[in-house]
Each structure stands twice: as C-alpha cells, then as structure tokens.
Write a protein that binds this DNA or RNA. Structure first.
Lengths: 225, 225
DNA sequence: TTTTCTCTTCAGACAAACTTAAGAATTTAA
DNA sequence: TTAAATTCTTAAGTTTGTCTGAAGAGAAAA
C-alpha cells in the first residue's frame, strides 16, 4: 500500500509520515503542490492524502489534474476550512473522502482503512509488468524473463514513468520532470542516451525494450498482442 | 507467536484454526464471547482475532474489557459487511486492524503478518536471519556463523533496518529516521561510516556483510541463492 | 534528395559512496 | 563531580560509478 502525502505544514507532514510509516505503509511526502503533483503523476500511489490549502498550486487544482490522469488513486482531502461548500466541491471534484482539521491520528487511520476496503487496493503488488518485463519498485530491479537488469536511477525512473503510463505517449519534457523534479531539468539528449543505454542492456540479454518513439511526440510502450 | 480466535461460526473457526496451525502459529480458539474473554484475560496471547457478531457477549464489549487490561495484545476485528459503518469506525479506535467478511485465508495471513510487524511484536521472540548472519533483537547481538559481533547501538539499528526490509532498497534518509527518530536526523556520511565499520568487523571474522549499495537508491540485502 | 528528428557512442565532468583518521559527544566508571 | 572509555560525527582523500554534451550515423518525414 503506497501512500502519498501532500502537506505544506512541516510539523503535520512529519508526524503523519512517521506515524503511517510505523503502521507499515510505504509513505512518501511532498511539501509543495508542484512537487506533490509530480510525484502523484508518476502514478505509483494507491492513496493520496491531499491538503487543500497549499501555497502556489492549490490542492483542488492538483486533484483535477490527477483525476484526468489516474482514476485508480484514492484521494483523501485534508482541509482547515470546515465550511460545507468546500466539502461538497471537494468531493465533486473527485475526492473519495474528506477530513477536516484538526483531526486525531486515529480518525485518519480509520478513513484510510475505509478507503482501502473500498478499492480492493490492499494487496496490489509493487510491481509493474509489461510483456516479458517487470519493474520491482521495492528492490529497484528490472527483470526480463526473470533475468535481472541493473539500471541506474535515472534509467529506472524513465522506464518506470513510461511503463506506468502504458497507453499514453510520454513526452521527453514529462520524463525530464519525473527525473529531475520541477525546478531542475534534463536535456532531451540525456534522456535519449539513457534510453539507448537501457536498450543495449536489454539487447545483451537477447530481448528488445518494448518502448518506441513516436516522432515528434514522445515515447510509448509497445505491447505484445 | 500466540493467537487467540474468538468466532462463533463452527466452520470458520475450525478452518482458521487448522490453517493457522499449519503456518506454525500457536492458536487457541473460543466459540463464545464469555469463554473467549476468559481465555484472553488468562492466557498470554500476542494477537486476538475477534468476531464482532457474537451471541450473548458482544465483540465490542470484549474489546473494551481487554483494552483496559492488556494494551499490548493486537486485535484484528472480523466483521460481516452488513455491519453499520459507524459501528465499524467506532471500534477501530481500539482495534489494530479490520477485516470484512467474506475474506480469503490469504487476506487474513497478510493482516496477521502486518500486525506482527507492527510495534514491538516482531522483536519479542524473534531474530532476523539473513544468510549466515543473524540479529538477536533481544540481546542486540549480531552473529556470523555463530560467532558474536559487537555492534554499537547505531550500527545495530542500521543493520536491523536493512535486514528487516530484506527485499526493499532502503534509502539513507530512511535509515537516518530509524536511528535518530522523527525530528532529529543523521548525515548520510555518518551512516556510511557506521556501515563501513560493520563491514570491517565482519571481514575480521572472514565474512562479508550481505548488504550492497544500489547507487542512487540506497542499501539492500544481497541474498545467497 | 534534403531536412529534421532520433539513436548511439564516447570521453570528460561530475557526484555518490567508501575508508580512514581525528576531534566531539556521550556514556560509564570512579 | 571528574576521569576514562566508548561511541558518534565531521572532514578529507580516494575510489567508483553515473550523467551529459558533442558529434556522427541512422531513420523518418517533407
């Protein structure tokens, strides 16, 4: 069960992270909306705990973007406002549950457990499979027909992003973001080099990386049929 | 690991008892609430699997009494789906986890394993074994082929965290947390120094620490195959 | 064919991780 | 409380592995 927490208050973010981690959840956190959105779009989270009041990029905006991309992620809204209009619009925008601050840790865990029950998400394995390839997100290992491939961090992130978004074309800009984050960036050429390197590693095992380039657009998985 | 099961359905009680026994757990069971409560209060159980819907003495009542007596026992609630939502939420405050009927045996075992990991339960009797190495969590002793290694507290915590998470890559940040706690932290370099020190100690006994660094990711156990 | 985009290779720049050593800080003993 | 011992952290040097820009080859569009 992978959880992403987007919360700008340092104190709350830290205490929730520690608490949920102790309960055995794999939890990542982001302090800003932009960073959080990026992480969320990488797509590997089951549940998103989202503070509505964020500086710069509003929680509601994040929610909208996410809902367009990934309909599987459960979203739990945190908000300091307790006005009912907020609640309504939040849930309308695609959130699954709502929790008004201040709340106790127990209240939060109850909501989380309910969210998990709802979606049969609990036993989703941390693995992405494409044809003969699999990405183990825990051990950061890529496998081809069971054989292990050693990928560097950037190579892994690129493949991860492309694999997660199986059906979509991923632009180099998006890949750059997913590697470097919002404020730094990586050249298109660098991405090409990384991909080339992964392709070579796969070839050495007698396979072919199921990623093709759509000229002018970006990269997409080629699925066996 | 001692488990107590309180469940009035004969079929379910028997099948769970047999199944869990086969997995190596010491499991006792009770068919009624009163009998179950007595056993829970008398015996020393680590985990209680408690059906909410019991004739005569309700599961919720049992939980309340137990929570006053023994705060260490982990409680896993079983409940029919027809239970009102609020009742479930209410009882979750005192329970550690919740499983809605019908459930598969696999689902149950996953919950149990999570319960054991949680808190200090894992540390009670157990030791962690990796290849020729073992960590005795009670005496804080590391052994290599039976030979004792003296580790300092921080060294032990680092190895413990890495060993517990056998299959995952553990980031230095995570290690730092597990050493220093929530709000303090430890430099990456400090961790490297500790690890280096442990490696040296192991080398002096003619072995090699089964921990490798995945550059850019973190540390992970290397298992013999 | 020409143009444009993408792939690959390679080497230098760069960064992460390891080790050693020494000074702080903490714990234990007196 | 001070003194001694242990443990922790910082710092610096070394090793190792990764990243990226450049440039030419290759492929697709115009």
């Amino acid at each position: 069960m992978r959880i992403l927490l987007i919360e700008d208050s340092d104190a709350l973010r830290k205490s929730l992270t520690v608490g949920l981690h102790k309960l055995g959840y794999a939890i990542d956190s982001a302090a800003t909306g932009t960073e959080g959105l990026n992480m969320a779009l990488m797509g590997e989270y089951d549940i998103l705990i989202l503070d509505l009041m964020l500086p710069l990029l509003d929680g509601m905006e994040i929610l909208k973007v996410i809902r367009k991309q990934n309909s599987e992620m459960r979203v739990l809204i945190l908000s300091a406002k307790s006005e009912p209009e907020d609640k309504v619009s939040g849930i309308l925008a695609g959130a699954d549950d709502y929790l008004a601050k201040p709340f106790s840790f127990d209240e939060l865990t109850v909501r989380l457990i309910n969210l998990m029950r709802r979606g049969k998400l609990l036993y989703r394995n941390d693995e992405i499979v494409v044809n003969d390839f699999s990405l183990d997100l825990n051990s950061k290992v890529m496998r081809y027909k069971g054989m292990e491939l050693e990928l560097t961090p950037n190579e892994f992130k690129i493949i991860e992003c492309i694999f997660i978004n199986k059906a979509r074309v991923i632009t180099p800009e998006r890949l750059s973001e997913s590697i470097a984050g919002n404020y730094d960036s990586i050249s298109k050429n660098a991405i090409e080099v990384h991909l080339s390197c992964v392709r070579r590693k796969v070839r050495e095992l007698g396979g072919e990386l199921p990623v093709k380039n759509k000229r002018g657009f970006g990269y997409i998985v080629t699925e066996d049929s």
